[in-house]
Design a protein around this nucleic acid. Structure first.
Lengths: 330, 330
DNA sequence: CAAACTACTGGCCAAAATGCCAACATGTGT
DNA sequence: ACACATGTTGGCATTTTGGCCAGTAGTTTG
């Protein structure tokens, strides 16, 4: 936002964002926002982002409840250093690999060596164009099965936020596009710039920090392997004691191994995870029941109300009653 | 995305998003995306999101590099249960409180009791309309000073992601709008629905979990109070030992107090923070220098290369050399 | 004015997390 | 078959973490 900054020398790196009807509005606005926030320390912009359509001046329907008129037409693709395909409703390839003529023609104008990225279901377009054959890719997890059915030759892994395969980069749904853009900025200009952009976009404590996981688990793993069963087991008895050794025993692992694997799988240590689940459960109870604060604390395994109060305070910044008051749904 | 689901009974809750030229495209698309993802377990949508402009059919310029034509005109405001003002370039109130005629008139049609929310610099509009007088609010941190100068009567706190003051809710920049929408969904329909929406939007491990901090620190605190100086001091000597007692001593606090305040200020325990900084610094070195992996590990205070390898692996999922290869900028 | 309440501090200690190591697997090239 | 890299496991020792408690202000209330 608010990037009407002076631009002494025009940014050299051109990013073209191709809006294909009906385009997912959110995906479309991610690249201009994030790349637009990439500046040198002195404020000079580093990217020139161009929204383009298949026909200059023609309106494109966006899923978000409006139509848009891109500033550029398909010619922008030929001048781009990076081309980004935001999500669009899934193009149904009647014959595999077939694309609408104008789209196919437009894609053909992309210079060899241009970096191509997709957000969300934009990967379907890349796949239909044959660009992903035999390569790793990702897309929105809710469309993963459909993708696999349509394009079995693509190595889809919907568990990752995005996949960087050099000149082709695909990202998972919606918000993962932000990570993708930040990743590209980091690749192009380093962490400093990417971090500044992230801060500008108020991607807060989140993956702001910088490196953040540039590969990260998205889909919840509900397997019957590893620590997953133990987690389910623990969730069912949050009100009990649940010491680390007890959980390790249930998992039939040594405490050491259990801790290690737990952290590898969830990204949190067992204790932290457990506490989070307890607080979460307490919140749930506050929302959906009339139990007293004491009772809630007890049922969530947080012992006393004081303890609940403390954790709620530190995690959400509110007292239990305030929380209930705010979220109590009629 | 992809929410062309059957809609048996139309959603009852109407959300109107007012696009004011030049609108921040990203902010604008957040509400339709997030609210649009709010469904019952059976898939029925819960909100009817309407993008509207001040004049039906008139194009509105978006900062992202396109113009858009909203589906609705200003009449949508009168029918809304919730009105959202996305960011827009800052309206300069020549006389305090003065708004363009058409905007003022449009805002007047909002029914009393309607919930009004702003994203990013949308708060300037609410403030200019006098809706925030004497009330707490937030906006994009980069515009906080300007906001304070213009509207000293508003209790601005730019440290929070969003502020829920009942019928008026304001949120910080850009991505914080996602949190705001999720918060409103949670208020309206509970955690389950909000969580499902978050998952759909691939707001991953982030604040997905649900409650997440519905108040959270955004702006980095670089003061000369509390543990901040100690953190700076620690950053300058990451290659040394830096035990917890040592840091506490530097901070002139007991270990206990130091830990407590550290966590309160940073949201992390000292150890976790330190490790993260070390890894971060190691990444920086990998990016910008040719030091051997061993040397990098040493300079970052991670001891051996094995240790570095391990942490990089667990945080970013890559080996040190792979990281360097990916991010080494010409 | 005293009791009650809150906020902050620091000490103590049990529990948890984690670095390090040695013991095995498993796989790989010679 | 053998040396060797790679990955996993569990034990051990150490540090870190955080619950609990008591002491000390500063503030409010009866």
């Amino acid at each position: 936002m608010c990037k009407d900054v002076a631009m002494p020398t025009p940014p050299s790196h051109v990013v073209a964002v191709l809006a294909l009807e009906p385009v997912v509005g959110f995906d479309l606005t991610i690249p201009p926002t994030v790349f637009g926030a990439a500046t040198r320390a002195d404020g000079t912009k580093l990217y020139d982002v161009r929204i383009c359509g298949l026909e200059l001046g023609a309106p494109v329907r966006a899923s978000a409840g409006f139509s848009l008129i891109p500033d550029y037409g398909p010619e922008a693709l030929a001048e781009a250093d990076t081309v980004i395909i935001p999500g669009t409703y899934i193009p149904q390839p009647r014959h595999e690999g077939s694309l609408p003529d104008d789209l196919a023609k437009a894609l053909d104008t992309i210079r060899p060596g241009t970096r191509i990225a997709s957000i969300c279901t934009g990967a379907f377009v890349l796949a239909a164009a044959g660009l992903l054959d035999g390569r790793p890719a990702t897309t929105h997890w809710q469309r993963a099965q459909m993708f696999r059915d349509l394009y079995p030759q693509v190595k889809l892994d919907e568990e990752l936020l995005f996949i960087d395969d050099g000149d082709i980069v695909t990202s998972a749904g919606l918000a993962a596009g932000v990570d993708l853009c930040l990743h590209l900025i980091r690749r192009d200009f380093g962490s400093e710039v990417a971090n500044r952009a992230a801060r500008h976009c108020v991607v807060p404590p989140w993956r702001d920090g910088g490196q953040s996981q540039f590969i990260e688990r998205v889909v919840p793993d509900e397997g019957s392997e590893g620590t997953a069963p133990t987690r389910a087991w623990a969730l069912a008895r949050l009100d009990e004691e649940l010491s680390l050794p007890a959980m390790a025993e249930y998992a039939r692992m040594s405490v050491r191994t259990f801790s290690r694997r737990f952290k590898a799988e969830t990204g949190q240590s067992p204790g932290t995870w457990l506490l989070q689940q307890r607080v979460r459960h307490a919140c749930h109870l506050l929302e959906t029941t009339d139990l007293s604060v004491d009772r809630v604390a007890e049922s969530a395994g947080l012992g006393t109300a004081a303890s609940l109060r403390h954790h709620l305070r530190s995690e959400l910044g509110v007292s239990p009653l305030a929380y209930r008051k705010t979220f109590r749904t009629g």
